[in-house]
Computed example of a mutant assay.
Amino acid sequence: MTRQPRIEDVAIAGDVIRLGQFLQLAGLVDTGGEAKEAILEGDVEVNGEVDLRRGRQLRHGDVVTLDGRGARVSA
């Protein structure tokens, strides 16, 4: 049985944010380089699916998970 990550709401200023930027804003990674590496290695999921696009546009309600931690894009 897979343990569900605790999801924290992370507010963004506009309507959209790029995946790489959101990983840093949410504190899931410390640097842009770490974000790029985690995404390219397939360690990042968006709404339950692996996404390999660092520039993916996230919108309010999207959930990003990495290493058992999660964050939801909020207003």
Rank of each mutant, 00 (worst) to 15 (best):
R18D: 02
G61E: 01
G14D: 14
V63P: 01
A35L: 13
I12F: 08
T65A: 07
V64K: 13
L23V: 08
L25W: 03
D30V: 14
N47D: 03
A38C: 07
V29L: 12
G42S: 08
G33R: 14
V64S: 03
G20P: 01
E45L: 07
A13G: 03
G55P: 04
S74F: 03
L52W: 11
I39Q: 12
I39E: 01
D51I: 05
V16L: 10
D30H: 15
R69V: 00
H60N: 07
V29G: 08
R54F: 05
R53S: 08
V73Q: 13
I17E: 08
G70C: 11
F22P: 12
V29E: 04
V50K: 03
L19H: 03
R18Y: 02
D67T: 02
P5N: 04
R72V: 00
R18Q: 12
L19D: 05
R59I: 01
R59D: 00
L40D: 07
Q4K: 13
S74W: 05
D9W: 06
V50W: 04
G55D: 14
F22L: 12
V16A: 08
A13M: 09
E49N: 04
L19N: 11
L58S: 09
H60C: 06
E45V: 03
A71G: 04
F22W: 06
L25F: 02
